[in-house]
Simulated scan of single mutants.
Amino acid sequence: MKISTKKKINKILLHVGLIIFSAMMLYPLAWMTMSSFKESSTVFVDAHKLIPTVWDFSNFKEGWKGFGGITFTTFFKNSFIITFIATIGSIISSTFIAYGFSRIKFTGKKFWFVLMMLTMMLPYEMVMIPQYIMFNSFGWVDTYLPLILPTFFGVPFFIFLIMQFIRTIPTELDQAARIDGCNSISIFFRIIVPLVVPAMMTAAIFSFYWRWDDFMGPLLYLSTPDKYPISLALKLFSDPNAVTNWGAMFAMTTVSILPVFIIFFIFQRYIVEGISTSGLKS
């Protein structure tokens, strides 16, 4: 009886602790969302109040107008173009490369795999300047190419993730397919791809998050306002030489995170399935 009571108390304490921790993590998000309904002049005056004293819905209308005649419709369109194409490129290329490392024998396989893994340890600051010089020499600055094209050559983290998933697939399936006359390409499309969909979806979700939230890339390579994605457009609200419209800024920030929440709630099962299964090896 004492052991059972102790377990119940520990369970209650665990849940209380998790609730408190979750509330602490979610409070900044809740504060930002509620601030989008406050008058701009009272956002920091009533910063201690979560619920607005006066609800102001005009922030969304004012924020959506954007800047210099460029509305947030354009900024959202730009973000979707960059994110969608880059995600497709990263998943297709990473899956091909992961299949090659997992199933195909070639000279220097271990060397190239180690080299690929080492690139995951390089801070972006180390390659930022060389990449900018290279893309500038190509004439790609102020275009979407530096943000999109590199993803078509594979993303190391996604390659590793999908490789771990492919290793859980028995090689006997490949051998049976070869007996039936399939070559490596046929095996890839007919056997491997259908079985690694959870890992591909997990990688796609992560890619969507990273590209949607990317700020440094567009800041480096884009200089024309009508090409800005959401992440860069939000910065335009903060003007040190003028009065910042905080209400509109928080309103557009709240709207900008909606796609991330929608993607997460629709595909969250793939995240759990993809990551948990990738940690196994047959």
Rank of each mutant, 00 (worst) to 15 (best):
I3C: 07
T5N: 13
K7I: 09
K11I: 03
H15G: 07
G17H: 01
I19D: 06
I19F: 08
F21G: 15
M25T: 15
M34P: 04
F37I: 00
T42G: 05
V43R: 00
V43H: 02
V43G: 00
V54Y: 14
N59K: 03
K61N: 08
E62P: 02
T71E: 08
F72V: 00
S79Y: 04
S79E: 02
S90M: 09
I92V: 13
I92Q: 12
I104R: 01
K105T: 08
F111C: 10
V114C: 13
M128T: 12
Q131L: 12
F138V: 02
V141P: 01
V141M: 02
D142M: 05
T143W: 09
I162V: 11
M163L: 12
T171F: 14
E172D: 11
D174H: 06
Q175V: 14
A177Q: 04
I179W: 07
D180L: 08
S184E: 10
I185L: 15
S186W: 09
R190L: 10
I191V: 03
P194L: 08
A199Q: 00
T202N: 13
I205L: 12
S207M: 05
D214K: 09
M216K: 13
M216E: 10
G217Q: 13
P218A: 11
Y221L: 06
P225C: 13
P229S: 09
F237C: 05
D239H: 13
D239T: 12
N245Q: 03
W246V: 05
W246S: 05
M252P: 04
M252I: 04
T253G: 10
V255L: 15
I262W: 09
I263Q: 11
F267N: 00
I271K: 04
I271E: 07
G274S: 08
G274F: 03
